[in-house]
């Protein structure tokens, strides 16, 4: 029984969350191969070869895969699928984008966003914004699965897998990349940070997010936001933590001016320690917080920054 894991990367480095998807593959059990599809992505392949528990790295290096266009990647993965019983990708924007396409091309269902493996055909996944946890058995012969990174611990990287290049180029020719507008930040990535500080509607405007920056710099934290803050236009969507934004589980999560709607809790309630700062003592966020401060964030934040 073989498992294919799709590597998330930016053509230069392997995204660390891929190590968690490999952990999910190990929980399923079988011979694990990693697919690196990209352009000029040899350095990613070298990194992938070091991932523990992986026997083979398949490299598909072509300009057709540079921007991970779903139309092209899904054809590639479908072509490779015959050799595998399980196909796994990380439930981040790339995996979420192309994997259902793979499933449909293979005429099988997809099991999205798994957080645990019960057996080779049975998986656990949150539904209803994490307010219910479903155990689902796949009835298909081939399993197409996306893995939620917060559900698994990363595997180590002291292995040595063989690297095999394939020259198959699948270009559907119906889509093309135009441009990227990437957020530039010196701070750690939201999904990977061990400390996250997030602001909500209580921040009142985008400028006030500066109050979080000083604290984030002192703690080496990433900055996030609630959907309310994104909806109100304070900050861009890539900062959104929640059911339909990013799912995070850092060691410390500081929620500032966030009431604690279920959609936000869905994105952060697996954090190890949660701190809530809110002037409304009745805010639902306090029901999940380990430590709460009831107070005006415009007083609390400068004091916190000063004393850290």
């Amino acid at each position: 029984m073989s498992i294919l894991v799709f590597a998330e990367h930016d053509n230069s480095t392997l995204k660390a969350d891929t190590l968690k998807t490999v952990a999910a593959a190990q929980a399923i059990g079988g011979d694990i191969h990693i697919l690196v599809a990209g352009s000029d992505c040899q350095s990613v392949a070298q990194e992938a070869a070091k991932v523990n528990g992986v026997s083979k790295v398949i490299v598909a290096d072509s300009p057709a895969y540079e921007h991970q266009l779903a139309e092209n990647i899904s054809l590639l993965v479908t072509e490779l699928a015959a050799d595998y019983e399980h196909i796994l990708a990380t439930a981040l924007t790339t995996g979420k984008n192309f994997m259902p396409r793979v499933a449909a091309l293979l005429d099988v269902a997809q099991i999205s966003d798994i957080i645990a493996v019960e057996s080779s055909d049975t998986f656990v996944r949150p539904i209803y914004a994490g307010n219910a946890i479903a155990t689902v058995q796949s009835l298909d012969s081939k399993k197409v699965i996306t893995v939620r990174p917060t559900g698994f611990d990363p595997v180590a990287t002291d292995g040595s897998a063989e690297v095999v290049a394939i020259d198959s180029v699948t270009d559907a020719g119906i889509s093309s990349h135009v441009s990227d507008q990437l957020s530039v930040s010196e701070r750690p990535d939201l999904g990977a940070a061990s400390i996250v500080i997030s602001g909500g509607r209580g921040m009142q405007n985008g400028d006030n997010f500066k109050l979080l920056e000083g604290i984030a710099d002192k703690l080496g934290a990433a900055i996030g936001a609630s959907r309310a803050a994104v909806d109100a236009g304070f900050v861009p969507n890539d900062m959104q933590v929640g059911q339909t934004g990013k799912i995070v589980a850092p060691d410390l999560y500081i929620a500032v001016g966030i009431s604690g709607a279920i959609q936000h809790l869905a994105g952060m309630k697996d954090s190890k320690i949660i701190v809530a700062i809110n002037k409304d003592a009745e805010a639902p966020i306090f029901q999940v917080a380990d430590y709460g401060i009831v107070g005006d964030l415009f007083d609390v934040l400068p004091e916190l920054e000063g004393k850290l």
């Binding site: 307010n131 219910a132 009835l139 430590y291 401060i293 004393k307």
Partner: peptide
């Protein structure tokens, strides 16, 4: 294509404590 085996409530977090100052936090 799939079978729902069971649905359970998520693990609940118990509410923590309200601290009275930034220093205590």
């Amino acid at each position: 294509r799939s079978k729902l085996i069971k649905v359970t409530p998520p693990a609940t977090r118990k509410a923590g404590i309200i601290v009275d100052s930034v220093d205590t936090l």
